[in-house]
Every structure is written in structure tokens, then in C-alpha cells.
Nucleic acid binder design. Structure first.
Length: 903
RNA sequence: GGACUCGUGGCUCAGCGGUUAGAGCACUCGGUUCACAUCCGAGGGGUCGCUGGUUCGAAUCCAGCCGAGUCCACCA
């Protein structure tokens, strides 16, 4: 830990009447960081560190609200809370090189800077005029621009990340680790190179995996095409007509498939037809993948350009023909269509079929079409030689880990989704045809075609170990960006070296991220962690929902992406963080709004002003805090009922908030915090702490109570609102408190709940209900707001005697316990008589209304207790119901008596 | 086709077996202006999607249905 410096004056001397986050946030964050508060302290024996990896944002990206929720809401909340619980906490930052996305971003930047450049058609991702080395030079250059941007945004959110351990997935040492990982996986047989059908994006010029593919609904022409019989057939043999939306691929057909149980066709399996235009003889084969309901039940099989057809081809040993290249142009194999792009070729083919009389009919069809999720370009399935990762064996241990609880997923229903995917996992194509990314450590010999994979600690090979040729060349592809991020939890800690960090911080604790990257990242981290480390990377996966605004999923194309940066600048990070987390339950999507942000801002300001009040009281009575702060009844005999009440409520809240955070119920934590701070501390206690409301001689007790309660409140609120709380704590701690203080809330201790006075809490609660009712009666009775009113309490009012002064003060009444002439109102079994101008008619109406309500409640109690409830329900529950019945009986009796008097 | 989630006051959501179902925002009324570009107080507003079932007791558990959304596979 760096030596901590004194907190900046901009913070300790900030005295704004309202909290202006801009005045202090940057100073405070810089101080936290330079003081080393965010780095885990020196290792201590027996410690249990809390370790979390930041879900690395794309280096070229900007933070969006989802990040703000994730990083500034849940993760920083957890990091700060665990740190305050005394656990050495490591929250490790970094960014992802974001392969294809970053390459596209920089290509656009280059285009802006140097004018539009025509892309070379044979290598779509190449900037014309730039060699691969030059282009990568540009990429690195731009990284220096983007990296600080994204890191600054994380700092603005207040994220307590350990910046001494920041990593970037393309750092040279990370590249080395990825290389070693690749080589080890290869040597163990988890990686192989194969010629298979893959998704190809014509816009991005690269392959992509199933996960990066999505479907859109589109309407196309469905063409029915007749495939003439190759040999003379007996009369009555039906024509073979297939339905296709891609007639241009007919030229690559190598079979026609029908369902083996299809009565219309099964007798014809094994016969041959001629592929139109190509005039090639192909067999009719039987395969269960064919949908009998679709079209005529006969399917043209094009293994070179369709996923399903490729699989059918594999099963039947069919030849794979290619008629479309990586630019989307028809190849020489397409004969008359060679050179046309795929869309033109489609029309041309239809024309030709029509001319030849082979086009039976056409109709529009609405169907799902696979597209690349990055750019919505329609998928062009191609057969290419690619590196693949064999997934099922890697998935097995990860499935087991979740099944046996080693790693727990929250919310639990996501586990089902995890299993579903993992148990049906398919091999992962990991090579990408772009330049920005991790190189594949494989060389190919041009002379003997050997595949050369060096040992993990060997330098790049220069000669072929098989034939000694020097004509070898490295695989030009790079690895999928998720290949490197899958290693993040161990590679950032030094793997494969057995570093101190790796030993101390692996396995980690929690992985918090959006459910949308469960497969992309979480599952893969688990698999690679288990493979490389023999242990899971985290014991808990907390998945949060999406943040929507205006009820729409935010996306760049919809143009409704709202930047949290502007919100922070306007309202402060605390307000934003609070607004995002408040009232959202685990895993649920949430709707964000200006209103929520406004509420967050006002809550932050409320806290600030409670602080201003507390500090002013403390300053006014400096002697009150001399010596240790003891607010136990023994240590402070001058405490009033109100002081003891708020102290007890504070302990109750500490207990409750601790439980909520422990159970990952962050939304409820935020709500409960606001409830306590606003309705109890501010609206009730602060009012009762004002000198003009204090019984003489209890002023010092109020100051001590305020100091204690406020200190607890700041700690309890710090995980979600770090800036305003630490500013206040630093100022509060200037005054005399000697015990339990820290240089900053960041490194202070989370409160341990102390003794409560439950009876007092209950009775005080009753007093508050009574106060409410008096206020209501005053208003409805037309009493002048400032005027004093006389109130008599009777019935079961004895427990309220200690609170006479409080009731009087907060309701503007002179209170006695004698009963009186006025018509009462009932709160539970306490009769309240408020002296207001009598109006017998109004009294009667009101009393009747109250009586009706009371009778209904009484009836409910009686029905309940008259049923089997009394026999079957647990004793404490029945006891409660009995007490309620008694109270309701008393209330009804009292109201009846009063009504009788009126009549 | 398979699976999952959600349907609670005008809006956004909590609550997920036991008192008269809560919060924020919005709304109505009344105050205040040396903690609070505000704040305080009071109030109106809910057949907890529908129909059955389990239970002494269901917004909460189960089944079916209706509606909204998501994921996985496929759509030639």
C-alpha cells in the first residue's frame, strides 16, 4: 500500500449547502487511489481474500448504463463492502482488445483521418496501402488513445479497482500466456484444424461462431425447381421438385435428400437426377433431417453452402463443392454464373431455370435468416480450414462444478440455462480472418505441408522440423477475442508462473456480469480455469439484468444508448449508482428513468444535509464528544427515549442491511437504506434532536447520539454512495471521535450490529402512529396549523407515557392521559381525544366510519380464530392473532361507547 | 420445436405461505422557509392477469389458460 496522504482540502473543507458532486469527486477518487486504499493489503496468515475480476470492457468502447449498473452498482458495492468487512479485497481492472470490433473502429478512424480508402477486395479487412505490420502499428497507436478513456470512465463511477494490477488482453505478457495456453491445449488434443462449414461474414471478412450468429425474420422468394431424372423412368414416376430460397447454390448440389420414411419418395431413394444447369448426376438419398412438411418433401443438398446440408453430406460421404468465395462472388466452378455476386447470381439462375422450363413455380416465404450479430450481414456458410476447440470434454468439469455447488449461479434459474447450453455444447471455431488479435502459434511448411506447433517455451520456428525447409509461414489468422478473455481470472494473476498473486487470489470469489454473456465468457472462463488451474475461477456467479430506457433494449442502432458519463457530470456518480441499483431484484431487467436519477440525487443531498445538521450540532457543543463515544445506556445516562430509539433502530438497520448484502439483495439494500435514513433518521430523529425540542440537559446526549448514528449511516451507505459518505466521514471524524476511525471510509469497518431495545422500538412505533392520527384529526378538524391543541390519551395508553414530550412536540399538542369530553379516534387500543371544535354530526359520521372499519377487522380476527387456524397454525402466529383480536375488541367497544354517548 | 422469465396502485418496481399488500415517481390538499435549489405533514388510488387445485391460511406453492419478453435449435 502506498503511504496515504492527507485528504484533499477540496474535500475536507467543502461546505456546500447542497452536495455538488463535481466539487469533490475527482479529488476524492485520486486521493483514494494514490493512498493505495484499493489495493489489497499485505498478506496475513489465515486471511480470506475477496477477489473479483472486472468484466473487461472493450477497449474502444464507451461505458453505457449497463456497465454503470454492473461496475458502479453491484461490483463496487461488493468490493467496498467486503473491504469494510476486513477481507483483503482485490478487484482487478482491465480492458479487452475486442478483436473485430476494435479493428472496425480503428479502420473507421483511419478512413476519417486519411480519407475514404477503398478496401482491397481480396482481403476485405485490409486498409489499402497499409501492410499488416503498419496496420497493427496504427492499432497500437489508437490503443493509447482509447485505453485512458475507458479507464477514466471507470474512475468517474467511483470503482475501487486496484489500478496497480491493470491488464490489457493484448499486453505482451498476456500474448505470451495465450500462446502457451494454445500450445498446451493443442498438445492435449483439445485443438484441431479441420475443413468444416463455418459462418462467414462478407462485411467483416471473417468467420464467426454460432454464438455470434443471430436470426432475423425476412421474406424471400421460394423457388420450386424440377430436377430431371438422369435415367429413363417408368411412366407415372413423379417429377423431383425441390424448394429453395437460394437457387444460385444449385450449382454446388451433390444430392437430393428425402425423408427415409416418406411414402411419396422412399421407393426412389438411390435413383439419380440431374442438377439443373450443372447437368451433374446426383443420387437421391434418404436422411431423417429432411422435413417432410416443407415444400415437396425433397431437399437439394449443398454441403458447401449450408450447415444442415454439410451435416447430411458428412453422413452420406457426399462431395463438397464451392461456388461462392469469401468475397461473395461466384467462383469459376459456377460456370456460366462465375464472377457474379450472390444476389445477382440468384436472379440469373432463376432466369436460366425458367428458360429451361425447370422453374416449376415461385412463392414468397417468410423465414428466419442467419446474420452476423455485429453487422446484420446475411451469413454465407463456407467450408474453410479452421482451428477448432473440442468443447464437450472441457465442458464436463464445468457442468460438474455447478451441479455440485462449487460454483453457484444467482439467480438460480440461470443454472438451468447454463446446463442446457453446456450439455449440448458444440466445438468452437477459434480462428478469425482479421489482423488485430492474438496470433496463432502455428506454422505451415510450404514444402512438405507439415503443421509446426512449437513447444511452449520455444521461440518462433524458422525451419521445418520435418524437411528442414525454411519456406514456412505462420498461420495468418488470429484467435477469437473470447479465447483470451476466457483466461482472464488466472492469466492476469501470472499464470502459468506460480506467482504469489496466483496462489493468493485464485480461485476468486464472485463474477458479476450480465446474463447475456453467460456463454460467451462465464462458461468459457470456468472451462479454461478448470483446465489450466484445476479449479473453478469463482464460487459465485451473479448475473444482472439489462437496463432499458423507454421500455426498449438499448442499442446503438436504435439510437437510444444513454451515456452514464453525462449523468455523472450532472448529478454525480452516487446518485446514478443509487438510482440504478435501487429496487431491482437479482437478474431482473430494469427500466431506468430520469425520475429514478432524480430520486437518487435527492437522497444523496438528503444525506449531505443530515450531515450538515449533525456537524453543526457537534460544532455548537464541542465538549459533548470529549472522550470515547459511549452511547450505551450505562455510558450515557442522559440519553432520551428518542436517542435510545434511534440507536436501537440503527442497530436493527445494520443487521438488516448486512443480511441483504450477504444475500446479494442489493436492490432491497438500497431501498431499506433510504427508508431508514429518510423516514426515521431525518424525518423523526433529526427533528427530535433539535435543541429547541430537547429536554433541558439532554443536548449533549443528542450530539453524541447524532455522531454515533450518523457515523453508522455513513458506513452503511458507503458501498453504494462512496463519494458523499466519505466526504462527510472525513469531516465528521475531524471532531473528537477517537475510537474506530480510519483514514477514509474506504478502509473503515462495516458496522457490527449492537444491542437493540425491541420493546422501546415497538412502543415508539405506536407513538408515531398516534402522532399521525393526531395530525390527521387536526387537519380534518380545521385546526390552524400553528395552533396548539389539547389531546387526551386513554385506553391502553400507558406504554406511551414516556413519549409524552415527543408526541406533544411532533403533533403540536398538549398531551394528557385523563380521557376527556371529545370524541375519540382509535389507534390499536389507544383512545385519542383531540380537542377540536365540536361538530356532533361530523363526529357521528367519522365514528361510524371508524366503527365499520374496526368491526370488519374484528370480524376478520374472529373468523380466523374460529377456523382450524387456531388448532393448526404455529403457536406464535396464533398468539399474535389473539393479541390482535383483543386489541380490536377494545377498539370496537370504545367506539361503541362513544357513539352511544352521542345519541 | 425446446426451455426460461415476467404479468402487483397512473408509471417503474419490491414483496414470493401467516397482522389492515409496500416504496419511489406522479396526483390532491395543507404548511414551512437558519440541515435540505427545497423540505415537512396529511390524503386519494390496488378483485396482486384469468380459472381451478393444495393448505387452517395463497399475491406468494401446483396445474391449465391468456398476455409480454428472452434464450437455444431449426426453418431448405
Amino acid at each position: 500500500m502506498a503511504s496515504e496522504t492527507k485528504a484533499p482540502q477540496a474535500v475536507t473543507q467543502y461546505r456546500g449547502k447542497n452536495f455538488d458532486a463535481r466539487a469533490i469527486e475527482t479529488f476524492l477518487y485520486d486521493w483514494w487511489e494514490t493512498s493505495g486504499f484499493f489495493a489489497p493489503p499485505e498478506e496475513r496468515p489465515g486471511e480470506k481474500p475477496f477477489v473479483m475480476m472486472l468484466p473487461l470492457p472493450n477497449v474502444t468502447g464507451d461505458l453505457h448504463l449497463g456497465h454503470a449498473l454492473s461496475f458502479g452498482g453491484y461490483e463496487d458495492l461488493m468490493a467496498r463492502w467486503h473491504r469494510m468487512r476486513g477481507e483483503p479485497t482485490l478487484w482487478l481492472p482491465g480492458s479487452d482488445h475486442a478483436g473485430i470490433i476494435a479493428q472496425i473502429v480503428v479502420e473507421k478512424e483511419l478512413a476519417k483521418e486519411f480519407g475514404t480508402r477503398k478496401k482491397q477486395p481480396e482481403a476485405p479487412t485490409t486498409q489499402e496501402g497499409l501492410s499488416r505490420e503498419q496496420f497493427l502499428g496504427e492499432m497500437w497507436h489508437w490503443m493509447e488513445h482509447y485505453k485512458p478513456r475507458i479507464y477514466k470512465q471507470l474512475r468517474m463511477l467511483g470503482c475501487s479497482l486496484d489500478w496497480t494490477r491493470v491488464h490489457f488482453t493484448m499486453d505482451p505478457d498476456m500474448q505470451r500466456r495465450v500462446r502457451i495456453h494454445f500450445i498446451r491445449l493443442y498438445q492435449k488434443g483439445h485443438l484441431y484444424r479441420a475443413n468444416r462449414i463455418v459462418h462467414w461474414c462478407l462485411t467483416c471478412g471473417t468467420t464467426y461462431s454460432d454464438l455470434e450468429s443471430k436470426h432475423i425474420i425476412r421474406t424471400d422468394q421460394l423457388s420450386y425447381v424440377r430436377y430431371p431424372w438422369a435415367d429413363p423412368m417408368p411412366p407415372g414416376t413423379p417429377d423431383v421438385i425441390v424448394a429453395t430460397t437460394r437457387p444460385e447454390t444449385i450449382l454446388a448440389d451433390t444430392a437430393v435428400a428425402v425423408h427415409p420414411d416418406d411414402d411419396r419418395w422412399k421407393a426412389l431413394i438411390g435413383k439419380e437426377v440431374l442438377v439443373p444447369v450443372a447437368e451433374r448426376r446426383v443420387k437421391i438419398i434418404g436422411d431423417a433431417a429432411v422435413d417432410r412438411e416443407f415444400g415437396t418433401g425433397a431437399l437439394k443438398v449443398t454441403p458447401g453452402h449450408d450447415q444442415t446440408d454439410f451435416e447430411i453430406g458428412q453422413r452420406h460421404g457426399l462431395q463438397v463443392l464451392s461456388v461462392i468465395d469469401t468475397r461473395g462472388l461466384m467462383t469459376a466452378a459456377a460456370g456460366p454464373l462465375a464472377g457474379l455476386d450472390r444476389d445477382t447470381a440468384r436472379t440469373a439462375m432463376v432466369d436460366r431455370l425458367a428458360t429451361k422450363g425447370l422453374l416449376s413455380s415461385q412463392e414468397p416465404i417468410t423465414h428466419a435468416v442467419g446474420v452476423h450479430e455485429r453487422c446484420d450481414t446475411v451469413d454465407e456458410p463456407l467450408v474453410m480450414k479452421q482451428w477448432w476447440m473440442r468443447m464437450p470434454p472441457l465442458a464436463k468439469p464445468a457442468i460438474d462444478a455447478v451441479r455440485n455447488g462449487t460454483t453457484k449461479i444467482i439467480p438460480a434459474y440461470q443454472e438451468k440455462i447454463f446446463f442446457e447450453w453446456m450439455e449440448n455444447i458444440r466445438d468452437w471455431p477459434v480462428s478469425r480472418q482479421i489482423w488485430w488479435g492474438h496470433a496463432i502459434p502455428v506454422w505451415y511448411c510450404r514444402d512438405c505441408e507439415a503443421v509446426i506447433v512449437p513447444d511452449e517455451d520455444a521461440p518462433d520456428p524458422t525451419t521445418c522440423p520435418m524437411c528442414r525447409s525454411t519456406d514456412i509461414r505462420q498461420d495468418p489468422d488470429v484467435l477469437d477475442t473470447w479465447f483470451s478473455s476466457a483466461l482472464w481470472p488466472h492469466s492476469t494473476l501470472g499464470w502459468p508462473e506460480q506467482t504469489k498473486d496466483l496462489e493468493r487470489f485464485y480461485p476468486g470469489s464472485v463474477l458479476e456480469t450480465g446474463y447475456d454473456i453467460l456463454f460467451y465468457w462465464v462458461a468459457r472462463m470456468m472451462m479454461m480455469g478448470l483446465e489450466n488451474m484445476g479449479d473453478v475461477p469463482f464460487h459465485t456467479v451473479y448475473l444482472h439484468g439489462l437496463v432499458r430506457m423507454g421500455n426498449q433494449k438499448m442499442s446503438k442502432s436504435k439510437g437510444n444508448v444513454v451515456s452514464p458519463v453525462g449523468m455523472i457530470e450532472e448529478h454525480g456518480a452516487d446518485a446514478l449508482r443509487y438510482a440504478l441499483v435501487n429496487g431491482v431484484s437479482a437478474g431482473a431487467d430494469s427500466e431506468f428513468s430520469e425520475g429514478k436519477l432524480e430520486n437518487g440525487r435527492r437522497f444523496v443531498n438528503k444525506l449531505w444535509n443530515i450531515g450538515r445538521f449533525a456537524l453543526a450540532q457537534i460544532e455548537a457543543r464541542p465538549g459533548a464528544l470529549a472522550g470515547p463515544l459511549d452511547v450505551s445506556p450505562a455510558g450515557s445516562p442522559d440519553l432520551t427515549e428518542a436517542d435510545r430509539w434511534i440507536l436501537s433502530r440503527t442497530e436493527a438497520t445494520a443487521e438488516e442491511l448486512t443480511r441483504l448484502i450477504e444475500q446479494y439483495q442489493f436492490g432491497e439494500y438500497a431501498t431499506a437504506l433510504q427508508q431508514f435514513v429518510w423516514s426515521e433518521v431525518a424525518d423523526v430523529y433529526v427533528e427530535l434532536a433539535k435543541p429547541q425540542r430537547r429536554p433541558a440537559g439532554s443536548e449533549d446526549a443528542a450530539v453524541r447520539t447524532l455522531a454515533y448514528v450518523f457515523d453508522r449511516v455513513l458506513r452503511l451507505a458507503h458501498p453504494i454512495m462512496p463519494f458523499v459518505t466519505d466526504t462527510l466521514a472525513l469531516q465528521l471524524w475531524e471532531y473528537g471521535r477517537k475510537d474506530d476511525v480510519a483514514p477514509s471510509l474506504v478502509v473503515s469497518r462495516w458496522p457490527v450490529a449492537g444491542q437493540r431495545e425491541r420493546r422501546l422500538e415497538d412502543r415508539f412505533g405506536l407513538a408515531i402512529e398516534v402522532i399521525r392520527r393526531i395530525r390527521e384529526r387536526r387537519q380534518h378538524g380545521g385546526v390552524e396549523p400553528g395552533a396548539k391543541v389539547r389531546v387526551s390519551l386513554s385506553g391502553e395508553a400507558d406504554p406511551l407515557r414516556p413519549f409524552t414530550g415527543i408526541i406533544a412536540s411532533l403533533s403540536g399538542a398538549d398531551v394528557d392521559f385523563g380521557g376527556g369530553a371529545e370524541a375519540p379516534t382509535m389507534v390499536r387500543s389507544v383512545e385519542i381525544r383531540v380537542a377540536i371544535p365540536r361538530d356532533a354530526a361530523a363526529d357521528r359520521t367519522r365514528l361510524h366510519k371508524e366503527l365499520d372499519a374496526a368491526l370488519q377487522l374484528l370480524e376478520q380476527s374472529r373468523t380466523l380464530l374460529g377456523s382450524d387456524f387456531a388448532k393448526r397454525a404455529p403457536a406464535p402466529v396464533v398468539e399474535k392473532a389473539r393479541a390482535a383480536l383483543a386489541e380490536r375488541q377494545a377498539a370496537v367497544a370504545s367506539l361503541k361507547t362513544e357513539l352511544a354517548k352521542l345519541d
